[in-house]
Amino acid sequence: MNAESDERTGGAGPVAPVSAPGDGRQAERELGSRAPAFVRGSRVLHLSWQVGIFVAGLAVVGAGIVMLPLPGPGWLVIFGGMAIWATEFVWAQLVLRWTRRKVTEAAQRALDPKVRRRNVALTAVGLVIIAVLVGIYVWKFGITMPWEIEQ
């Protein structure tokens, strides 16, 4: 009997995605609220729970937006706020799944040997161009420290 069949009925049943330890994959969680059962049981309590989660996520996302131009881990904080929202809202869970999928794809592309060789070559060419431009500038104008410039 194969692993996908149900021994009691003999038919093949739906198989939940299972990840082996250490293979880097995670089983997809169900969409929806992760609030405790007693909170979901009361409509008023669940609505107030959702408002609290939304406000907390909004504060974290707002702090991340402020950190984008200022020093700090802006994008990391924004994704943290999205993770807070994802504990309660399906739209945030879908956004995080999409983002996780795109980041994984980008990481796999970046580790591709052909892409790495191309990136190293482009970086080397860019550094040579910058070195030539700095050399031309120094040859033409010399090195003068900013505090020694005559006005």
Score class of each variant (00 low, 15 high):
Pro73Leu: 15
Leu94Ser: 05
Arg117Leu: 08
Arg29Ile: 05
Pro17Glu: 15
Gly142Trp: 15
Gly10Glu: 03
Val120Pro: 04
Ala27Ile: 04
Val134Gly: 01
Asn119Tyr: 04
Arg117Ser: 04
Arg116Ser: 11
Ser5Leu: 14
Met82Lys: 01
Gly81Met: 08
Gly41Asp: 06
Glu30Asp: 12
Glu105Val: 09
Val55Gln: 01
Arg101Leu: 11
Pro113Ile: 04
Ile78Tyr: 05
Pro21Asn: 03
Arg117Gly: 03
Gly64Asn: 10
Asp6Cys: 15
Ala106Met: 10
Thr144Glu: 08
Val103Met: 11
Ile65Glu: 01
Met67Trp: 05
Ala59Thr: 14
Ala92Tyr: 04
Trp85Cys: 04
Val18Cys: 03
Leu133Arg: 04
Ala3Gln: 08
Val128Cys: 07
Gly13Ala: 14
Asn119Ala: 15
Gly41Tyr: 12
Ile129Arg: 03
Asp23Lys: 09
Gly13Thr: 14
Arg100Ala: 08
Phe89Asn: 07
Gly64Leu: 12
Glu4Pro: 00
Pro17Ile: 09
Arg29His: 02
Arg100Asp: 07
Ala121Arg: 15
Val90Pro: 03
Glu28Asp: 12
Met82His: 09
His46Asp: 15
Val18Asn: 00
Leu122Pro: 00
Met145Cys: 01
Trp85Gly: 03
Trp49His: 12
Asp112Leu: 01
Val77Asp: 08
Gln50Ala: 13
Gly41His: 12
Val132His: 02
Ala107Cys: 06
Trp75Ser: 13
Arg8Gln: 08
Val125Leu: 15
Gly126Ile: 01
Arg34His: 09
Ala124Trp: 06
Leu47Lys: 06
Val51Trp: 04
Ala63Thr: 12
Ala110Gly: 01
Gly41Asn: 05
Met1Asp: 04
Lys102Trp: 06
Gly62Tyr: 15
Leu76His: 15
Gly41Thr: 01
Ala3Thr: 02
Ala106Gly: 00
Val90Trp: 06
Ala59Gln: 07
Ala83His: 00
Gly41Lys: 10
Leu76Gln: 13
Gln108Ala: 15
Ile65Ser: 01
Trp98Asn: 08
Ile84Pro: 02
Leu133His: 00
Thr9Gly: 07
Ser33Lys: 02
Trp91Lys: 09
Leu68Asn: 01
Gly64His: 12
Glu28Ala: 13
Leu58Val: 01
Arg109Trp: 12
Gly24Lys: 04
Glu4Gln: 09
Thr104Pro: 00
Met1Asn: 05
Val125Ser: 11
Glu150Ala: 15
Gly126Trp: 04
Thr123Glu: 14
Pro71Ile: 03
Ile65His: 03
